[in-house]
Design a protein around this nucleic acid. Structure first.
Lengths: 98, 98
DNA sequence: GATGATTACGGGAGCCGTAATTATG
DNA sequence: CATAATTACGGCTCCCGTAATCATC
């Protein structure tokens, strides 16, 4: 089983949070093509479909929903390690709104 | 601050556990050159020297010792995610010996 | 001279952005 | 026709293995 790079998890969290590949691509400042490739690569490596693509966006499958907290946990550890702010503003806004 | 790929952390843990780049390279089935590059890349990205190189091996600096448990924690989450056995046999043997 | 780490160097794989394509409303 | 995702393609960066080099015993 191959390694899963941090970049793929970051793409997954961004897309899962927004239910949109395009919005995730804008957030991570990459092209739609790159975002599509990253999600595809992650699905291939895990051997699991993570999103249901439909007309206006992409929603998490049950497998995708299961993965999301684990992916966030890894990114949280990683970001603490490199001294970066807590990963994915959109998700943070939802979790911390007051 | 750039991402730190899982592969770099894996190289670091293997080398730190064995106090030897060569042994770590054999364990991860890569060349000595690749191992040296990976450790250098990690040191560069963190801006910290992780090993003291000497004649028969490479020993962790205090900074390297601090990093080791964090690196193991990330790899543990990662490996659980992909359903891999608990990361770095040599370290596991030391931690779990009976 | 043997061992262990580093450096140099080409080759190949992988990733990206652009842009064309498909699909749906 | 507008929007969102995918695919195709070319270019470029990065990573690896080989092999030469440095350093220490």
């Amino acid at each position: 089983m191959p390694d899963i790079e941090t970049r793929l998890l970051r793409a997954f969290v961004a897309a899962g949070t927004r239910a949109s590949f395009g919005a995730a691509a804008r957030n991570l400042e990459c092209s739609p093509g790159a975002m599509s490739q990253r999600i595809r690569a992650l699905e291939a490596r895990l051997g699991v479909r993570l999103f249901d693509r439909d007309r206006n966006g992409a929603r998490l499958t049950p497998d995708g929903r299961d993965l999301l907290p684990d992916a966030r946990a890894i990114l949280a550890l990683h970001d603490r390690l490199v001294g970066r702010s807590p990963a994915d503003p959109a998700g943070a806004r939802k979790r911390n709104r007051q």
